[in-house]
Computed example of a mutant assay.
Amino acid sequence: MNRGIVLIGFFKLLKGVLFVLLGIGAFRLIHRDVLDVVTGWLINMHFDPESRLVNLVLDKAALIDAHRMKQISIAIFCYAGLDFIEGTGLVLEKSWAEYLTLVLTASFLPWEFFEILRHPTWLKAVLTLVNLLVVVYLLFYVQWSLRQKRKKATQEAQEGEG
C-alpha cells in the first residue's frame, strides 16, 4: 500500500464532501436575492460596510441571477463528482486514478497561477502549492510504478525462457 497515494485520495474525498456542501449552499440560493443574503452575512460577521472589499463583494453578488446560480451549482457538483471519482480510485490504488488525478490537477495549475498573479492571497498560494506538490509526487510515483512494472515483466519473461 502506498500511503502517499491513499492520503491524496482521502484529501480528494474530503474536497468532494466540501464541494457538495458548497453546491448545496449555492443551490439553496437559486430563488433568493443573493445580494440580500450576502449583505446579511457581511453584517452578521461585522465587516466594515464602507470597506472596498465589502463593496466589491456586493457589486459581484448583485450580478448573480437565478440562472447564473444554477450554472454555478452545477459546476460545483460536477467538480465534487470529479473529486469523488479521483479520491475513490486513489484510495483503491487504481492506476487509472493516478493518471486521471495527475492530468486534472496539472491542468488546473496554470489557472491557479494566473489567479495568484491577478489577486494574490495566502489561501490561493497554499492551495496551489498543495496541488503542485500532488502533481510532482504523482509524476515521480507514476514513473517509479512504470519502472517497477517493466522490471517485473522483464523478470517474468526471463524466468519463462529459463
Rank of each mutant, 00 (worst) to 15 (best):
M1K: 05
G4S: 02
I5V: 15
V6C: 07
K15N: 12
G16Y: 00
G16Q: 03
V17D: 01
L21N: 02
L21I: 12
I24P: 05
G25E: 08
R28M: 14
V34R: 11
D36V: 06
V38I: 14
V38T: 08
G40H: 13
W41G: 05
N44C: 05
M45E: 13
P49F: 11
R52I: 07
D59E: 15
I64G: 04
D65A: 04
A66Q: 08
A66I: 04
R68D: 09
R68C: 04
M69S: 06
I72R: 07
I76G: 01
F77Y: 15
Y79A: 13
G81C: 05
D83K: 06
F84T: 01
I85Y: 12
G87I: 02
G87Y: 10
K94T: 02
W96L: 10
V103H: 02
L104D: 08
L104I: 13
L109F: 05
W111P: 00
E112Q: 14
F113E: 06
I116V: 08
P120L: 12
T121S: 15
K124G: 07
A125Q: 07
L132K: 01
L133Y: 11
V135H: 03
V135Q: 05
L138S: 01
F140Q: 06
F140N: 06
Q143M: 14
W144Q: 13
W144K: 12
R147Y: 07
K151E: 12
T154L: 13
Q158I: 12
Q158G: 00
E161F: 15
